[in-house]
Write a protein that binds this DNA or RNA. Structure first.
Lengths: 75, 75
DNA sequence: TTGGAACACAACGGATATGTTGTATTTTCC
DNA sequence: GGAAAATACAACATATCCGTTGTGTTCCAA
């Protein structure tokens, strides 16, 4: 799968989970000591985040890390 | 979980999968157009790899990406 | 003992992630 | 429509990834 496509889908998935929780980018960011712009870049697929960064986001969303992960076969 | 601990466990897990497949760091690296040193840094937990880099490694190992992922609750 | 294979370590350069600030745009709600 | 909130975009500085080269160490086989 192409990198850009992968990152875009990852971002969309994270956004879905966040919205399902009913919190804003800012609230998620502050919960994990980041800021809104950082979450925005992630959700829009503009960056290729590190795995630890994703772990922190998963914590902020109160989900397991693997829930954020996309496998090729699922796309 | 501490970053260093997380990355170390991730690296160990990747090494286990690679060894179970019976291939060397060099073989894995070349299969995904990287080199041995890059895989070495990953397996020893010296870096915080990007998610897309991990996806490529998963391809090289012929596993799904989420197999590489550690959740806090599992550690 | 020598040679080769496998793994580890260090350093360098270019690219890019991430934190940050500022601001623009969009959405929501009155 | 207007205000406020939410999201998006841009740019800058710093840190770090990743590719790369060179080399060291260990182990095994010939």
């Amino acid at each position: 799968m192409q990198k850009e496509v992968f990152l875009k889908i990852l971002g969309e998935r994270i956004r879905e989970i966040r919205e399902r929780k009913g919190i804003t980018q800012k609230q998620l960011a502050h919960a994990i000591d980041k800021d809104q712009q950082s979450i925005q870049r992630l959700e829009t697929g503009k960056i290729n985040p590190s795995i630890y960064y994703l772990l922190e986001v998963a914590h902020g969303l109160e989900v397991e890390l693997d829930i954020l992960i996309i496998n090729d076969s699922k796309v």
